[in-house]
């Protein structure tokens, strides 16, 4: 079943801001996701995108993560991804994103 695309924001451990997304990150939601992600990245020191409720990440979604990673890097901040599993984890792995982002399995694993 398709999950509705919902975004949330919460404080995580060790000063991380956890940006929760559910549903799909694809061409239709990528713009929204990037706008929200950019906002969070700009105001937070460390941003973790929680993908545990995400069913699917398309190449547009990969691009969102890539741009946010670059944005964080350019501003001396940190951006990573947690909770990726199944298809999402496989896509991240196939595209090499796992090597770029220091991905963690859960929020609690954040350094």
């Amino acid at each position: 079943m398709k999950k509705e695309f919902i975004q949330s924001e919460a404080a995580g451990p060790n000063g991380w801001t956890v940006w929760g997304v559910s549903g799909r990150i694809d061409i239709t939601t990528a713009e929204d996701a990037y706008a929200r992600g950019e906002e969070i990245v700009r105001k937070s020191g460390k941003t973790a995108l929680d993908l545990s409720e995400v069913d699917y990440v398309s190449s547009a979604g990969i691009r969102v993560m890539m741009r946010l990673f670059d944005l964080a890097e350019d501003n001396g901040k940190e951006f990573t991804v947690v909770g990726a599993a199944g298809t999402v984890a496989r896509v991240l792995k196939e595209t090499g994103m796992d090597t770029l982002l220091q991905m963690q399995e859960t929020v609690n694993d954040l350094p």
């Binding site: 595209t95 090499g96 090597t99």
Partner: peptide, 12 residues
């Protein structure tokens, strides 16, 4: 080695 996508990381 899956490699990285092309076009974003010069050092990939």
């Amino acid at each position: 080695n899956p490699g990285f996508v092309l076009g974003v990381r010069k050092k990939a």
